[in-house]
């Protein structure tokens, strides 16, 4: 992979980390608030179903994970296992697609 792409990936990972920082904070606060007085599926769905604000929030959250996790994992694999090259990149694109698919499926499940 050429240097320019490497550096752009690095920038994408840093920017997605900033987005994740905000998303994780909001997510944790939501958990704390939602847990008060017990937790039920009905209560969660009541909050999320048809609510566009939560839908957009969690789509952004999933998008940030899709960008962030595979790039970080790529660096860890390169450093720890010494794997690099096109096959590793393909593997991580597949991982990114899987994370996106699973994440959006979950978001849709609590929205629709």
């Amino acid at each position: 992979m050429n240097t320019r792409t490497e550096v752009r990936l690095w920038a994408a990972q840093r920017i997605s980390a900033m987005v994740l920082g905000v998303c994780v904070f909001v997510h944790l606060i939501t958990i704390m608030v939602a847990m008060r007085g017990g937790l039920s599926a009905a209560e969660i769905l009541e909050r999320t179903q048809g609510n566009w604000a939560w839908f957009v929030f969690y789509v952004v959250f999933v998008a940030a994970v899709v960008v962030h996790a595979p790039i970080g994992l790529r660096t860890i694999i390169e450093e720890w296992l010494g794997w690099r090259g096109t096959w590793l990149d393909i593997l991580l694109v597949v991982l990114a697609a899987a994370l996106g698919l699973w994440g959006l499926r979950a978001v849709w499940a609590v929205f629709a």
Binding site: T3, R4, V7, R8, W10, A11
Partner: peptide, 14 residues
């Protein structure tokens, strides 16, 4: 250097 490289990459100079 990371900041300088990022700016250059985003500008297309890298």
């Amino acid at each position: 250097l990371k900041r300088a490289a990022m700016k250059a990459a985003l500008r297309g100079d890298l």
